[in-house]
Amino acid sequence: MSIYNKINAGFSLGTDEPITSGIEDVIYIFNADDIVLTYDTTNPLIVKGLTAVSNAKVYKFEGTNNSFNTTSKLAKTQVGPRYTEEIDFNIAGLSVEVKAQLMAMGYGRVRAIAVNNYKSSDSAIELFGAVNGLILTDAERNAADESLDGGYKLKLTNPDKMKEPYPPRAVSIAPTSGTATYASTIAAIEALVVTA
């Protein structure tokens, strides 16, 4: 009997490019049905294109002092491995516009792109919620919390009973001519970002 997937490579920890923890103080969030994902035909773990539907946009959230974090956890299920994906971040504000965005993220599905501090990898930029999307599951505000100046602590994660079939996808987008690089991928994402 053959198993569904088989390992096909090994790896070792390198001393030339030691891994670095954390993500940059920026995440890109978009409505799940606003951007069409194009996957690499030979590797479903790579997103090689993002296409806006009807001029939809990507929204850029910026923070400071390591205020964003991502988590991916393996969960064994009866049909195989699934992954719970989470993104924690803070919002320094409590306007009605902020509250409207929180409500939208709680009811609608979004996807999010995070940029790892560790750049020496083909997964320097990762997409969370590729298949089932993410929803806002935690939005906590303590008015006396001095670390956030009374802002919100937020958590985006998969909807109940809808874990992801793959770990976070690598995002690697090539320019119109040439091969994909970190710079070309960031440029492609930024081209879809809403400008004020």
Rank of each mutant, 00 (worst) to 15 (best):
S2Q: 09
I3C: 11
I3T: 02
N5K: 07
K6F: 11
I7N: 08
I7K: 07
F11T: 01
F11R: 10
S12A: 06
L13Y: 05
D16S: 14
S21D: 12
G22W: 11
E24S: 11
I35L: 05
V36C: 05
L37M: 07
Y39E: 05
T41N: 09
T41F: 14
T41W: 06
N43K: 06
L45V: 00
L45C: 07
I46S: 01
V47F: 02
G49K: 08
L50T: 03
T51D: 03
A52T: 00
S54R: 08
S54G: 03
N55L: 07
A56Y: 05
K57D: 05
K57Q: 14
V58H: 05
Y59L: 13
G63D: 11
N65S: 15
N66S: 14
S67T: 11
F68Y: 15
T71D: 08
K73N: 15
K73Q: 15
K73H: 14
L74K: 09
A75F: 11
K76M: 08
T77G: 13
Q78G: 11
Q78D: 15
R82W: 05
Y83S: 05
I87G: 06
I87A: 08
D88H: 12
F89W: 14
N90D: 12
I91T: 00
A92L: 15
L94A: 00
L94T: 12
S95R: 12
S95W: 09
V96C: 13
V96T: 10
E97F: 12
V98W: 07
V98A: 11
A100S: 11
A100I: 06
A100G: 08
Q101W: 14
Q101E: 13
Q101S: 10
L102H: 13
A104D: 13
A104G: 02
G106K: 02
G106L: 06
Y107P: 04
R111C: 10
A112W: 00
A112S: 10
I113G: 05
A114W: 01
A114K: 06
N116L: 13
N116Q: 00
Y118S: 15
K119P: 09
S120T: 02
S120K: 08
S123Y: 07
A124Q: 05
I125F: 07
L127M: 12
L127Y: 00
L127S: 00
G129N: 10
V131Q: 00
V131C: 05
N132C: 03
G133L: 02
I135S: 03
I135K: 10
T137Y: 00
A139F: 08
A139Y: 13
N142P: 10
E146C: 09
G150I: 05
G151M: 14
K153R: 14
K155N: 06
L156R: 02
L156H: 06
L156D: 03
T157S: 15
D160T: 08
K163P: 09
P165S: 03
P165M: 04
P165I: 01
Y166I: 02
Y166V: 04
P168K: 01
A170D: 01
A170K: 02
A170T: 01
P175K: 01
S177W: 08
S177M: 08
S177N: 11
T179H: 09
A183N: 13
A187N: 06
A188N: 06
I189H: 02
T195A: 14
A196W: 13
